[in-house]
């Protein structure tokens, strides 16, 4: 117990000696973790909102179930003859139910309340040129088998590619800042080890184990990176909760992100930050404390 309190005491002493460096390190870890957390969440939200539009679906024609399935099939066949259409896929009511369950998997209340019988079957249209979607709307106008038409439009296309760009650039920045954090931790530890050179020498002389000598440094690194990541994750959760409540449900940007994904993301980030701290401290004090 006394050993443990010695380690904690020295961790705090080390950190108090270089407050600015510690602060900078925490900030760098925070920004890096925040970037990772928010972009991955954003990507998940966009994916949840666009499941329907992936796999090259450009137009969804919801069918009126009061019309017979034969009429549905006829419509499909006539659509297939249009030159601007590449494929038409029939999407049954049960497939619609499955899709709905995926889309709203984090909203169990909604899932239990929905009358799946009311979910319409649909035709999923893939166009040779996605910008031709207006033509399809014109042609379907007034057709009794059609209940409603939704198109991906170019907005969705752009949103999807934008998200990818966002994820790539944010990850690059997260990596760069993470690297900066790594360097900062290494320098903080080396500075601390250097200023305690004599102390460490004496500890060696009286037979303190090398784990014991190292622990304050390892603790410091793990603590700093864990603090940074925790604040980042906290901020991330806060922002998501805030947006969930502030944006109207019908908007294209439903904040549909499952809690289990968020928890998973949080745990992975926290675990990574511990590993990050361990690794940085390993590199930081390997040479300094080795003689």
């Amino acid at each position: 117990m006394n050993k443990f309190s010695y380690v904690i005491k020295n961790t705090i002493l080390n950190m108090r000696r270089t407050p600015l460096l510690v602060f900078a390190t925490i900030i760098a870890v925070l920004v890096s973790s925040f970037l990772v957390f928010t972009t991955l969440s954003a990507r998940s939200i966009v994916q949840n909102n666009t499941v329907r539009w992936q796999n090259g679906t450009h137009v969804v024609i919801f069918l009126d179930d009061r019309v017979t399935t034969t009429a549905h099939k006829q419509l499909q066949q006539s659509l297939e003859t249009y030159p601007e259409i590449r494929t038409v896929e029939y999407f049954t009511k049960s497939e619609a139910e499955e899709e709905f369950k995926i889309l709203f998997k984090d909203q169990p209340e909604l899932l239990s309340e929905v009358d799946y019988e009311k979910l319409p079957s649909s035709l999923r249209v893939n166009l040779n040129d996605p910008s031709d979607y207006e033509l399809i709307i014109e042609r379907m106008d007034g057709n009794p088998a059609v209940k409603e038409i939704r198109t991906s439009g170019e907005a969705i296309e752009r949103l999807l590619s934008l998200t990818n760009t966002l994820v790539i650039s944010a990850s690059t920045f997260a990596l760069l800042i993470g690297f900066a954090a790594f360097i900062l931790i290494i320098n903080t530890l080396r500075l601390a080890a250097y200023s305690k050179k004599k102390e460490i020498k004496i500890m060696r002389l009286v037979g303190a184990s090398s784990t014991y000598i190292r622990l304050p440094f390892i603790f410091e690194a793990v603590f700093e990176s864990l603090i940074g990541t925790s604040i980042a994750v906290g901020l991330g959760w806060g922002i998501i909760e805030y947006s969930k409540n502030s944006i109207v449900a019908e908007s294209i940007f439903d904040i549909t992100i499952s809690d289990s994904y968020l928890i998973y993301l949080t745990l992975v980030l926290l675990l990574s930050s511990i590993i990050f701290g361990l690794f940085a401290s390993f590199v930081g004090i390997r040479k300094v404390l080795n003689d």
Partner: peptide, 11 residues
Amino acid sequence: AFALEVMGTSN
């Protein structure tokens, strides 16, 4: 006392 402290001796 330092020599005892770093060996985890009780206060």
